[in-house]
C-alpha cells in the first residue's frame, strides 16, 4: 500500500515536471492579438526572426480584437496587437494601456460570388454594400465584436443602411472568427467583408472572389499597446516594450513588408518615425 502510494506520487511529479511551461524560464511575453494576424500567417513569418534576434519567446493568443482587449484588461497579456482604433483608445482611456503605436495597415475587401448577383463589384465599398442590401443577397457577418466586425458596422452606417431595420434572413451573424465566417460564406455563396490577409491565406474559397477593393476607406490600421504595469504589476514591462520597439523599428517594419503570399504583400508598415 505504501509502495503504491510512493509510486503514485513519483508518477505525478514526473508528469508535472514533464509539462513544458509549468516552470519554464521567464523569457517570454504573452501577446493578445487578432485572428487576422494569426490566420494570415504573419506571426509565423515574424516571430522566428524576433526570437532569433533576442531569444525572447512571443506567445500569441489569437482572439477577436474585442476579446483580445478584454484579455489584457484582466491582466492576462503583456502586449495587445489589434486593429480597432476606437476600442484601442477607449482601452487606453480606461488606464489599461500605456501608449498606442501604429504599426502597419492592411485592407479589407468585399468578397462575394463570382457571378455577383447583387452587382456589388467596383471601387466603392459603400456603394457595394448598398447593392447587397438592395438585392437582399446573402451576407455573412462576423458578429463577434472583432475589429473586422466593428469596421463592417461602420461601413453599413456610412452607407446609410439602417441594419436594425434592414436585417433579415439575408444577413447572417455567425459570431465566429474570420476563417469560420469565410467557410460559412463559401458554403452559402454569400457576400462577406474580410481582411485581405486571411483571404489570401484561405484555401476553401469555393466560388468566391474579391469584388470591391482599393477604396481608401477600406484601410485597416493595426496598433500595438503595452498593458499598463500600474494596473497589472506582473506585466513584463521591459520585454513587452522591447517587442513594441522592434515592431516599429526599421528592422521590424522591413520584416513586416517582406511577408508575402503568392507575391502579394499583405501588411504595409506605417509606423511613425520616433
Amino acid at each position: 500500500m505504501n509502495r503504491i502510494r510512493r509510486n503514485l506520487f513519483g508518477l505525478a511529479a514526473a508528469l508535472l515536471v514533464g509539462l513544458p511551461g509549468a516552470h519554464a524560464e521567464d523569457r517570454f511575453i504573452t501577446v493578445a492579438s487578432t485572428t487576422s494576424t494569426e490566420q494570415s500567417g504573419l506571426f509565423t513569418h515574424l516571430l522566428p526572426i524576433y526570437v532569433q534576434k533576442t531569444g525572447v519567446q512571443i506567445r500569441v493568443v489569437a482572439l477577436g480584437t474585442g476579446q483580445a482587449l478584454d484579455t489584457a484588461r484582466r491582466g492576462d497579456a503583456d502586449v495587445v496587437f489589434v486593429h480597432d482604433k476606437n476600442a484601442e483608445e477607449k482601452f487606453i482611456g480606461e488606464g489599461y494601456g500605456v501608449e498606442r503605436k501604429e504599426v502597419m495597415y492592411n485592407d479589407f475587401v468585399l468578397i462575394g460570388p463570382k457571378d455577383d448577383p447583387a452587382k456589388a463589384a467596383g471601387k466603392d465599398i459603400l456603394d457595394g454594400l448598398r447593392k447587397v442590401e438592395l438585392a437582399k443577397a446573402p451576407f455573412v457577418s462576423r458578429g463577434d465584436k472583432s475589429g473586422t466586425h466593428a469596421a463592417e458596422l461602420r461601413y453599413w452606417k456610412a452607407a446609410a443602411v439602417d441594419l436594425e431595420r434592414a436585417k433579415g434572413p439575408w444577413y447572417k451573424e455567425t459570431g465566429s472568427g474570420m476563417g469560420p465566417a469565410l467557410n460559412t460564406a463559401s458554403s452559402m455563396n454569400a457576400y462577406i467583408l474580410a481582411d485581405r490577409g486571411t483571404w489570401l491565406n484561405f484555401k476553401n474559397r469555393g466560388d468566391l472572389k474579391v469584388l470591391v477593393e482599393g477604396d481608401t476607406r477600406l484601410f485597416n490600421q493595426y496598433g500595438v499597446i503595452l498593458v499598463n504595469p500600474a494596473k497589472h504589476p506582473h506585466v513584463k514591462k521591459e520585454l513587452g516594450q522591447q517587442f513594441i520597439d522592434w515592431l516599429v523599428s526599421d528592422e521590424g517594419q522591413k520584416a513586416i513588408a517582406e511577408y508575402k503570399i503568392g507575391g502579394e504583400q499583405l501588411f504595409f508598415p506605417n509606423a511613425k518615425k520616433p
Binding site: 506567445r59 476563417g179 469560420p180 467557410n183
Partner: peptide, 24 residues
C-alpha cells in the same frame, strides 16, 4: 490554453485552427 504555437497547441486546437484557415 490559448492555442499558442509551440506552447499550448494540441491536436484539437490545431484542427480548429486549420479549419479556420479553410485548409480542410
Amino acid at each position: 490554453g490559448g492555442n499558442i504555437d509551440g506552447v499550448t497547441r494540441v491536436m484539437t486546437t490545431t484542427i480548429a485552427l486549420e479549419t479556420s484557415k479553410g485548409d480542410l
